[in-house]
């Protein structure tokens, strides 16, 4: 799993502010949450950073493939156990007696649910890793027995 620090290591680390962020670390965090794209850092396009630029482009897969919160479900690995559905704090808060208690979700506001044996996402904007007050919640990752969930 990629974290902001790993991304930072590949940036110019000059805090030049050309991207509009105060520091390279801030840019790294913004990259991680897909607020910005790799191309938003002008110095990266210089020749001396070519290798880093390519590496970053590889790590930061386009948001189109992942959900808006950067969550990817590898459906071919998912076994439909529902551990993530029950452990997800948003699911628990939105549906304490359904999803939060191990049962079928009874609220339309849940983020994760199992359909046809595989986990499906909805309302991803409510994921704790999304938006301004995001935290690095990993409830769905550590509870997955097959590593079917990933955040990019």
């Amino acid at each position: 799993m990629t974290n902001a620090l790993e991304i930072y290591q590949l940036l110019p680390k000059t805090n030049c502010k050309q991207c509009g962020k105060a520091t390279c670390m801030a840019f790294a965090a913004a990259l991680l949450s897909r607020e910005v794209v790799v191309d938003d850092c002008p110095p990266l396009k210089e020749d001396k950073f070519k290798e880093n630029y390519e590496k970053l482009s590889e790590i930061i897969t386009p948001a189109g493939e992942a959900s808006e919160s950067g969550m990817i479900v590898h459906t071919e690995k998912c076994i439909g156990c529902g551990n993530c559905v029950v452990a997800c704090p948003v699911n628990v808060a939105e549906d304490p007696y359904g999803a939060g208690s191990g049962n079928a979700p009874t609220s339309d506001n849940v983020i994760l649910r199992v359909e046809d044996g595989v986990v499906r996402l909805s309302n991803v904007s409510q994921c704790r890793r999304f938006g301004k007050n995001k935290i690095l919640c990993n409830g769905c990752i550590v509870t997955c027995p097959t590593k079917a969930i990933e955040f990019v």
């Binding site: 076994i79 304490p96 208690s101 191990g102 509870t143 097959t146």
Partner: peptide, 25 residues
């Protein structure tokens, strides 16, 4: 159980909130 009874942990034993287990797994 992840391979034999996949919902064992999520529906009953480890992850769900229960009457005397309200704070999460």
């Amino acid at each position: 159980p992840s391979n034999s009874h996949p919902r064992h942990l999520s529906k009953y034993t480890y992850f769900p909130r229960g009457k005397e287990r309200q704070r999460g797994w």
